[in-house]
Amino acid sequence: MALAANIVIGLVGLIHVWILVLEMFLWTSPTGRKAFGLKPDFAEATKVLAANQGLYNGFLAAGLFWGLSLGTGGFGVKVFFLLCVLTAGLYGAATASRRILVIQAIPALLGLALLFIS
């Protein structure tokens, strides 16, 4: 189960790296606009805010990868950052889009569950 937990945590980290790329570098591109359902003028007007948001997603990914790099000693780090992702996912699902529940919150919850049963 520990291997399954680490795989899920790695995937959650990779998802957040992708979100960083979308928000920091592709926000105004067709790919970024499609991912977030944005009109070109809105994307242009909000690109600085999105880049800031992307940076925070990068910190979540970095924390998850840090926890993985610590092996069994990284349990607390993994739990902390998965809880951060879960909280962000629940808030995003409640305020922005229900899709965030599937993209962020559920994978984080799965990672937490696997961590605690391994």
Rank of each mutant, 00 (worst) to 15 (best):
Met1Ser: 11
Met1Thr: 07
Leu3Arg: 09
Ala4Ile: 09
Ala5Leu: 08
Asn6His: 14
Val8Pro: 01
Val8Ser: 05
Ile9Asn: 12
Val12Thr: 10
Val12Asp: 05
Ile15Asn: 06
Ile15Gly: 03
His16Asn: 13
His16Ile: 10
Val17Phe: 11
Ile19Leu: 15
Ile19Gly: 00
Leu22Ala: 10
Leu22Tyr: 02
Leu22Met: 15
Phe25Pro: 00
Phe25Asp: 00
Phe25Ser: 09
Trp27Pro: 01
Thr28Ser: 13
Thr28Cys: 13
Thr28Asp: 12
Thr31Ala: 15
Gly32Asp: 07
Gly32Ser: 10
Lys34Gly: 02
Ala35Thr: 05
Phe36Trp: 15
Lys39Leu: 13
Pro40Trp: 07
Phe42Met: 12
Phe42Ile: 11
Ala43Tyr: 04
Glu44Ser: 11
Glu44Tyr: 02
Thr46Pro: 01
Thr46Ile: 03
Lys47Gly: 02
Ala50Asn: 02
Ala51Gln: 08
Asn52Ser: 12
Gln53Trp: 09
Gly54Arg: 03
Gly54Ile: 08
Asn57Glu: 08
Asn57Trp: 10
Asn57Thr: 04
Phe59Pro: 01
Ala62Gln: 01
Ala62Met: 14
Ala62Val: 13
Gly63Arg: 03
Gly63Met: 06
Leu64Thr: 02
Phe65Ala: 10
Phe65Ser: 08
Gly67Met: 09
Gly67Gln: 08
Gly67Asp: 06
Leu68Ile: 11
Ser69Met: 10
Leu70Ile: 03
Thr72Ala: 14
Thr72Leu: 11
Gly73Ser: 14
Gly74Asn: 05
Gly76Leu: 11
Val77Leu: 08
Val77Cys: 09
Phe80Val: 12
Phe81Tyr: 14
Phe81Gln: 06
Leu82Phe: 07
Leu82Ala: 04
Leu83Tyr: 01
Thr87Asn: 03
Thr87Cys: 12
Gly89Asp: 07
Leu90Pro: 01
Tyr91Pro: 00
Ala93Leu: 07
Ala94Met: 14
Thr95His: 13
Thr95Val: 11
Ala96Leu: 13
Ala96Arg: 12
Ser97Gln: 07
Ser97Asn: 15
Arg98Val: 10
Arg98Tyr: 08
Arg99Met: 13
Leu101Gln: 01
Leu101Trp: 13
Val102Pro: 00
Val102Asp: 03
Val102Leu: 15
Val102Asn: 04
Val102His: 07
Ala105Glu: 05
Ile106Tyr: 03
Pro107Gln: 11
Leu109Met: 13
Leu110Tyr: 00
Gly111Ala: 15
Gly111Glu: 04
Ala113Phe: 14
Ala113Glu: 01
Leu114Ser: 06
Leu114Gly: 07
Leu114Pro: 06
Leu115Ile: 12
Leu115Asp: 03
Leu115Met: 14
Leu115Glu: 12
Phe116Pro: 00
Phe116Arg: 02
Ser118Tyr: 06
Ser118Cys: 02
